[in-house]
Design a protein around this nucleic acid. Sequence first.
DNA 1: TCAAGATTGATGCAGGTGCATTTATTGGGC
DNA 2: GCCCAATAAATGCACCTGCATCAATCTTGA
Lengths: 162, 162
Amino acid sequence: MKRKPSTEATAAWIRLMRIQGSVLDAVEQDLKKAGFPPLAWYDALLELSRAPSGEMRPVELEKQMLIPQYSTSRLIDRLVDEGLAARRECKIDKRGQFVEITEAGRELQKKMWSAYSAAIEKHFGSKLSDADALKLCGLLDRLGCSCDEAPALAPREGAPTR
Amino acid sequence: MKRKPSTEATAAWIRLMRIQGSVLDAVEQDLKKAGFPPLAWYDALLELSRAPSGEMRPVELEKQMLIPQYSTSRLIDRLVDEGLAARRECKIDKRGQFVEITEAGRELQKKMWSAYSAAIEKHFGSKLSDADALKLCGLLDRLGCSCDEAPALAPREGAPTR
DNA sequence: TCAAGATTGATGCAGGTGCATTTATTGGGC
DNA sequence: GCCCAATAAATGCACCTGCATCAATCTTGA
């Protein structure tokens, strides 16, 4: 009788957990050493900068980033504190609000992308051929939870994370 | 001129980060809902249970688990508090100590593996053929940092994480 | 129209994590 | 033998996260 998670699946699981962790760690360390804030900030700024008018509802941001509501709320707090984003009132729904990226926010996002993309290349891209990367995409996509799956996985620039 | 991290590499990066996050999350939720402690506890108990005499140095544990020193120290605190492990003095090096898994620790590790393996199968294994799993292993292994790479990636049972 | 329930966002609290530092001990060079 | 750098482990502090809950507002349906 076959084992429930096959030996192969278990081996792949272990690697997925370990390798992702160490590669992400290496990238975040590079960013931190370059004096940049955490990647979550980048992800948020990227999403905001992509929004048609540079602003979006916290709920939207939350869905895009796959992070819990309170986490979004506090992340926005920090961005606002640093002048990277601003809260705008939402006239059509007084419970809510809009968050708008500032000029400083756009600039930081761009600067971070320089460092971030370099780190991705160094710790990840340089170790795979494009063909390998495509294979990896294919395999990982098969794991995509039936659930949401962030809509616009950006064929453009900048890589959101997590 | 080619982009630095190719489009393919960037796409793979995004998926690696997002999919790993959501799958790990799903698995941890299952474990938590079943009333079990965090996966890190399981990993530690697994490592300890595998040690020849059921005990190892914190430093060893730290290297196996790829977590920082202080993190290991506190994890051991919690395991000891719960009676899952015990600190033993180390006669050959009085700076150090040995951590020994208790019977309760071994039992918890086994119970957790039932739930953990089921969750791996549900959220991961069932979505990949064995051949796919092997391909995924191969691709991920290419990313292994030149650094350590936890030695015994256990061809046995139980999957360590992160 | 109005009450019940759903949705948006914030927050108090407990616990976890990273960083830097501290304490104890070891080992190496002189 | 003695001093100093290196190693083992713990810990104080600031910050971050998850959970539960709250207040405000919107929506639905009788």
